[in-house]
Design a protein around this nucleic acid. Structure first.
Length: 120
DNA sequence: AACGTGACAATAC
DNA sequence: AGTATTGCCACGT
């Protein structure tokens, strides 16, 4: 106990967003960072993911870098587990890179709640 | 307490 | 255009 961390604000936010990533969809670190107000600190998002290594609640495999590359696939056990998970969700992955990343890209700002407008 | 690290991204040249 | 460097901020040692 000691310490007043209660919750890792920053990390919790990252987890919260990552948890909101829809099935079959992917997002980038910068998108999450930007949503948190720290676009330049995309590294921290990845760092937060590092701590998420053990939290099944955080689909880190749906988080890729700006190029749609599975940068942290090595952190999933060093295997293609991350790619397998994405493919299992219908996400095409080729050479550790997400295909149609532009279409599969999901922005936290688009977080549904009352809108279906996709082509707006 | 300080230094180094880190799953990125943007800017500069 | 691609390549190189800096910025960022918190965690780990």
């Amino acid at each position: 106990m000691s310490s007043t961390k209660e919750n890792d604000n920053f990390f919790e936010k990252v987890y919260a967003v990552a948890r909101k990533i829809p099935y079959g969809r992917v997002t980038s670190y910068g998108a999450i960072a930007g949503y948190l107000g720290t676009r330049r600190s995309a590294r921290m998002v990845g760092w937060a993911m590092n701590a998420c290594n053990g939290r099944e609640d955080v689909p880190a495999h749906r988080v890729v870098n700006r190029k749609g590359i599975l940068t942290g696939k090595f952190h999933f056990g060093g295997t293609n587990l991350m790619q397998q998970l994405l493919e299992s969700e219908g996400v095409e992955v080729y050479e550790n890179q997400v295909v149609n990343f532009d279409e599969l890209f999901w922005d936290p700002s688009e977080e549904p709640g009352d809108k279906f407008a996709e082509d707006q």
